[in-house]
């Protein structure tokens, strides 16, 4: 069988991608029947296409985040945002941050996600797996720690006592947050489970919000604003358990 136009590599690609006209496709098909080597190559390419779909199509069926929200306003993307974005990219995969932070609400929610929830979750996944250096100042030096961190954050911090829930204070550390400083307190239960309380001073006016909840894979966060301070309690716990802890934290701080 003869071919009017020679089959090019571009034809083969387009054949694999289903982007040939019907006639040209038939021509390529008959060419392939006579050229087993090329045919093998084309089969490889088709297999690659199939495997790519197999690897990633399941994402299409993943449930979209509970609160599908479209942010109305975007905070200006300064250098720190860029740095944060890079950090997020680096750490990605550690927890699957699935969109709970996404969509429909107003600007404050947006601010909270960017400046409280994400940094808190990020700090949680960075420091809780640490064996030797989970904290900067150990819980034994609680008094010193609270003085120091309060001074750095320019506010009065208090460290909740969560022993009634079986959580002992491990200690705390100073953290750079998106555009200011933050403090993280870490607690640990006998079975090794750790939770962190993230404290950030300012950035959202003087307001009060209710408890809000978000969860990605196993990492759950309850967060709220109380006056100038924003809190995020992060842990790999179920919602109710973390909620009870959040209530205790809230009560002790008020």
């Amino acid at each position: 069988m003869s071919h009017h136009i020679p089959v090019t590599h571009a034809d083969l690609q387009a054949y694999v991608d289903g982007q040939l006209g019907a006639e040209r496709q038939r021509e390529v098909e008959s060419y392939l029947q006579q050229n087993p080597d090329t045919s093998t190559m084309v089969e490889d390419l088709l297999r690659i296409n199939k495997e790519i779909h197999k690897a990633y199509d399941p994402v299409l069926d993943e449930p979209l985040p509970e609160q599908l929200v479209i942010r109305q306003r975007k905070p200006s993307a300064g250098l720190l945002d860029v740095a944060a974005a890079i950090c997020w990219m680096m750490l990605g995969g550690v927890i699957g941050w699935q969109f709970s932070s996404m969509m429909v609400t107003t600007a404050p929610a947006d601010t909270l996600t960017a400046h409280l929830v994400k940094p808190a979750a990020f700090a949680h996944v960075v420091y809780t797996p640490e064996v030797r250096h989970p904290v900067e100042v150990s819980g034994d030096e609680q008094e010193h720690m609270v003085k120091w961190l309060s001074k750095r954050l320019k506010t009065t911090l208090r460290i909740p006592d969560l022993r009634s829930h079986g959580f002992e204070l491990v200690g705390g550390r100073l953290l750079p947050s998106t555009d200011r400083m933050a403090a993280q307190f870490m607690y640990q239960r006998e079975d090794g489970v750790r939770i962190t309380l993230y404290n950030r001073h300012g950035g959202w006016g003087d307001e009060q919000t209710s408890f809000q909840y978000t969860k990605q894979n196993n990492t759950a966060v309850f967060y709220w604003i109380d006056g100038p301070l924003g809190f995020a309690l992060v842990g790999n716990l179920d919602k109710l358990e973390l909620f009870k802890l959040s209530e205790t934290v809230y009560q002790q701080l008020n």
């Binding site: 997020w88 990219m89 990605g92 995969g93 969109f99």
Partner: peptide
Amino acid sequence: DVLAADDLVQ
């Protein structure tokens, strides 16, 4: 990388 990917989408 789920986290980075969803960040990108967002």
